[in-house]
Design a protein around this nucleic acid. Structure first.
Lengths: 270, 270
DNA sequence: CTTGACCCTCCACTAACTGGAGACCGTACG
DNA sequence: CGTACGGTCTCCAGTTAGTGGAGGGTCAAG
């Protein structure tokens, strides 16, 4: 018979924990001195204790371990317990994986928010846009609904991200309530799914203007760029708005620092 | 200003939890009625609340979230918190993965223990053994140390298992204390590591005898098979002992049900 | 004024321990 | 035989992130 300290050394389980297991009925001492209430364990109990530590390492809850121990004594099936627990572990594992992935995306995005464009020119510039593969959700209604679209795109395609999110505006003029637009995300690869379309945005020549500040003042920038485009040729729908720096995933940030690029494609009138 | 119930509906956080967050200083109401001690929240607090739920979904502890909220207000760096947490998540993830893998191995082994050989013949039989790739640990000393060897092999190669564990006996006669033997595990593939050697066990012709019961009585079976081998030719070292059914990973099981196959290779004397 | 919905505080409970206080027990040494 | 020291006892509190409930006060409508 071993005292609790000796048993602790033999099993690697702390004295505190042994007392706790006793209280829970999981590992009961074989004898308790009536006078001193000292706990004494038989050597054979070491095997039971080792089984408990083995199962605890597998993250089985104590209740399950108790059931397994009892079932084993009754020569019953212990596999079902293990398999149930395996399912739980898998569930927990995939939950954690999801959390970890989301966190990674969050870190990436917040990092990008922090480093603004190195040198930004707030003048109208001509640009050749290459084709790019994008995932998009086409929407009709209020512009403010776009956040839902970006949230959904981000959920499925953050890992394939290939640039900043942007919007396509199909209306030739400004519409408040019945706008026709698409939330877009440049991606490396992917396939259409539900209302998300994956397609290739055509190349073209455009004028570009970087806008700094809150979205309410975007109209001012449009009023600058549209006449400039008309001078060069015919406006091509849809126009694009690239969100270089906007509200972060977590915090809104300061709207004064938002950076939005307006791109309007055109065909030259020869 | 919203009452706690309205705020709860707006944020999806239960009333109970909101009170809890208040108590923790994480999300403090903007006003508390002096008479009724009703809590009232400004609408802007909804954003803060959403940040909290977002971060909770990423399994950040409340303390971390509080730090992030405070740091953000002070316009400090929040990335370091996120990155620290990401490390923790990865750690937890790999712990869980390990547990899940071990559990899977445990389930597989216990399952095999349960289904004994379908038809077992307890007579001496001649067999052609094919070559097989094995991982082995060579040991000198007491036979009883073999359990350590099997534990180590299992740890590294359970996922590549390709059959039952077995032992190679290099001694021509029985030695108690200075035996020369190897614990072995048939595997699909792998490389040598530390004291684990991966190599190909050569093919050969052997006599085989299945032994049922506790290991103490194995000698009886050896006394049956050795003369039979000698009749056919010369004994080839090492002999093999295959543990079809032995003590499980968790429980010792009943030694009466242990099944061990003795294989002794020989070269025919023409 | 009553009813029903809403809100309050305080307490207990979860899992698996850990830490500490204060008291008792056992053995060896002087 | 007294005492010093280590081992052991019980009991209580605290950890996380809430949940559940009891008992009682508050608000707005009818």
């Amino acid at each position: 018979m071993l005292s609790i300290g000796e048993f602790s050394r033999a099993t690697g389980i702390t004295v505190k924990t042994l007392r706790f297991y006793h209280e829970k009925g999981l590992l009961v001492p074989d004898h308790i001195d009536a006078d001193s209430s000292y706990r004494y364990y038989r050597k054979e109990k070491i095997d039971t204790a080792k089984v408990i530590t083995t199962l605890r390492k597998l993250e089985l809850p104590l209740r399950e371990i108790e059931s397994i121990l009892l079932s084993y004594q009754a020569d019953l099936d212990i596999l079902s317990f293990l398999e149930t627990h395996q399912k739980n572990l898998h569930q927990r594992l995939s939950d954690l994986q999801t959390a970890s992935n989301s966190l990674e995306a969050l870190i990436r995005i917040e990092k990008e928010q922090r480093n603004p464009m190195p040198t930004t020119d707030f003048t109208i510039q001509e640009k050749e846009l290459p084709t790019q593969l994008i995932a998009s959700i086409t929407m009709r209604g209020k512009y403010s609904d776009c956040s839902k679209g970006f949230a959904k795109l981000g959920k499925y395609f953050w890992s394939q991200a290939n640039g900043k999110p942007f919007m396509l505006y199909y209306d030739k003029e400004y519409k408040e309530d019945d706008a026709h637009f698409a939330t877009c995300f440049p991606i490396k690869k992917g396939t259409s799914k539900d209302d998300i379309e994956v397609w290739e945005l055509p190349a073209g020549k455009c004028l570009s203007l970087m806008h700094k500040g809150c979205y309410d003042t975007l109209r001012n920038s449009y009023e600058k760029i549209i006449p400039a485009v008309k001078e060069r040729g015919n406006l091509v729908c849809p126009s694009r708005e690239i969100y270089h720096k906007g509200p972060g995933m977590l915090f809104k940030g300061n709207p004064k620092n938002y950076l939005t690029e307006i791109q309007i494609l055109f065909t030259e009138t020869c």
